[in-house]
Design a binder for these strands. Structure first.
Length: 523
RNA sequence: GCCAGCGUAGUUCAACGGCAGAACGGAGGACUCAUAAGCCUUUAAUAGAGGUUCAACUCCUCUCGCUGGCACCA
């Protein structure tokens, strides 16, 4: 047993939650739940990023005071997590003066002590309409699209962070595997950035322009720019800079920062450089996921293809949504969400798959054995092994033709299947882990047909019992593997088979109860 | 423009240089415990042109097509 600390990015509150936020929440939750299942002491953090000019502008647009505005959006993100059954241990928000400010301020001071903060001149494009700096990417045809005006080039004095100093140290950290970036291609992207050399970054803004933020320590005329503010959430939430830093001592460094590819640079260059400067350990893994597209396009309001996660959950339930995003969408590549694909996956794998299986087995136990199966000796279980070819879906190569390939279900689960599952999670191949679970489900369905317990019951009741016992064990093993992905369903299966825990050793006797369909058919 | 990656069955994805696999879809079959669910069989593919090799999806060159990254935007 060890500690495990995982984070999502903190979500920017200038707009309500959408599919992308749901995706990050779900993936992180799956990994967190897997680690809890294994007995790791797990800390899972998510939260919101609430400062900056964009938020101030959004509040103004909504005609609401900034603090009220951010609070309402924040609550939406909280609600999203709750609706999705996200098991986060904490929720940090950057406007929290008690919990977040001290960490950001302490971090700033550390960087300053290291001599990495200096006053410099920032030159940027200033949009008069926005009353703020905007970037190249905000422009359309050289004009600010919101105000249809070309920006002015303005110089102002603010603080800089000596990022350039950390180009070489970062190269080394990546090279020596101190900082792992997954998948590999993202590590390559960082390498090419490092090859070009990092430039120092602007670290503050005059508070007359942006007062909504954290004041720079020792200089009230400046407000922290996003980096030292937002990124610090990963440690401020653990108590860094506050009186009690015990959680920080215990959980830092993060085992995984889950991030989208769009914020790769900040998490693989800026943030680690800041940590190096502050003399803090680096996160172990930056796990970079792709984007979830909708109908082949990036989701956007103008295209009108915004998917509302609340709607989906309302119609299909959180587990179905979690299932789709974690199995049918590739973690490392851009994925796609469409109503059709989602409905097909729901129907094919949940209705006709998990739901049907759980019920077909429990029904047989109910009608043939009055709902309960007693303990069965190993011998009887071994006498009804899986058919030949049960290894195929795991891509395990047979060493020889004569090699024994007839496994009892418990043996197969514990000696082979679970190990493969653990292996997949160890490399954060979440999709593969789900594939393993669903491949096993297919084996179980074949197993029913191989032994035909519904026939066997007439000729050999003892054997039928062993078969159904094995099938129940299989259902529970399936439930265990599905737990990170579909926690509610998984726990429901345990209940249906009358067991209390995910510990295989406790699966000795089963008592099934009548139950509704796990996944009702739609339409 | 520069850098990286990709192109495999109708679709979505696999395959240390050694018989190209799976899922979904399509076609057929046997069954009936289950949500007309499930099972079995079957169908079909390496973008193109060269090269290296006994052997290339895999390595090299070129062509065509696609995607991503190229800095202060969470």
């Amino acid at each position: 047993m060890s500690k495990f600390y995982i984070t999502t990015p903190i979500f920017y509150v200038n707009a309500p939650p959408h599919l992308g936020h749901a995706y990050a929440d779900i993936i992180a939750d799956i990994i967190a739940r897997y680690h809890r299942l294994r007995g790791d002491e797990t800390f899972f953090l998510t939260g919101t990023d609430e400062h900056g000019a964009k938020v101030a502008r959004a509040a103004e647009k909504a005609g609401v005071e900034i603090p009220k505005f951010v609070e309402s959006v924040r609550e939406n993100f909280r609600k999203l997590a709750s609706v999705l059954n996200i098991s986060n241990d904490d929720f940090i928000f950057t406007a929290d003066e008690e919990r977040h400010f001290p960490g950001a301020i302490k971090l700033w001071k550390k960087l300053e002590e290291a001599g990495d903060i200096y006053k410099g001149v920032y030159e940027g494009m200033y949009c008069v309409g926005h009353e703020a700096f905007i970037t190249e990417k905000d422009l359309e045809d050289g004009k600010c699209p919101d105000h249809n005006e070309a920006p002015q080039i303005i110089k102002e004095e603010n603080y800089f962070f000596r990022l350039s100093k950390y180009t070489e140290p970062l190269k080394k950290a990546v090279e020596f595997g101190e900082l792992a970036i997954l998948p590999k291609k993202r590590a390559h992207e960082l390498s090419s950035l490092l090859e070009e050399g990092l430039r120092d970054i602007s670290f503050s803004r005059p508070s007359k322009d942006i007062s909504w933020g954290i004041p720079v320590p020792g200089d009230q005329t400046q407000t922290m720019y996003v980096w030292c503010d937002a990124l610090a959430n990963y440690i401020s939430a653990l108590g860094y800079g506050r009186e009690d830093e015990s959680k920080f001592q215990k959980f830092w460094p993060a085992d995984v920062h889950l991030v989208g590819k769009d914020i790769l640079r900040f998490h693989t260059a800026f943030w680690p450089a800041m940590l190096l400067s502050a003399g803090l350990p680096l996160p172990k893994t930056i796990l970079v996921h792709g984007l979830v597209r909708v109908g082949g396009r990036k989701m956007s309001k103008t295209l009108g293809n915004v998917v509302d996660p609340f709607e989906i959950v309302k119609n299909y339930g959180a587990d179905a949504f979690r299932y789709y995003l974690s199995r049918e969408v590739g973690l490392f590549e851009d994925g796609e969400f469409t109503e059709e694909k989602f409905a097909a996956a729901y129907e094919g794998n949940l209705v006709k798959g998990v739901g049907n299986y759980v019920r077909r087995v429990s029904t047989m136990i109910e009608s043939y054995f009055a709902g309960s199966l007693g303990e069965i000796g190993e011998e009887r279980v071994a006498a009804v092994p899986l058919r030949k070819g049960s290894l195929d879906f795991l891509n395990i190569e047979k060493k020889s033709d004569s090699e024994i390939e007839f496994f009892s279900i418990p043996y197969f689960v514990n000696e082979i299947l679970w190990k493969k599952y653990v292996e997949a999670f160890a490399s954060y191949e979440v999709n593969r882990a789900a594939d393993i679970a669903f491949g096993f489900l297919k084996e179980l369905d074949s197993y029913v047909d191989d032994y035909k317990p519904f026939k066997l019951i007439e000729t050999d009741k003892e054997k039928a019992e062993a078969v159904l016992w094995s099938l129940s064990y299989g259902a529970l093993a399936l439930a265990k593997m599905l737990y990170p992905f579909m926690p509610a369903t998984s726990e429901e299966i345990l209940k249906i088979y009358g067991v209390e825990s995910f510990d295989q050793n406790s699966w000795k006797t089963f008592k099934v109860s009548k139950h509704a369909q796990l996944f009702p058919k739609k339409e």
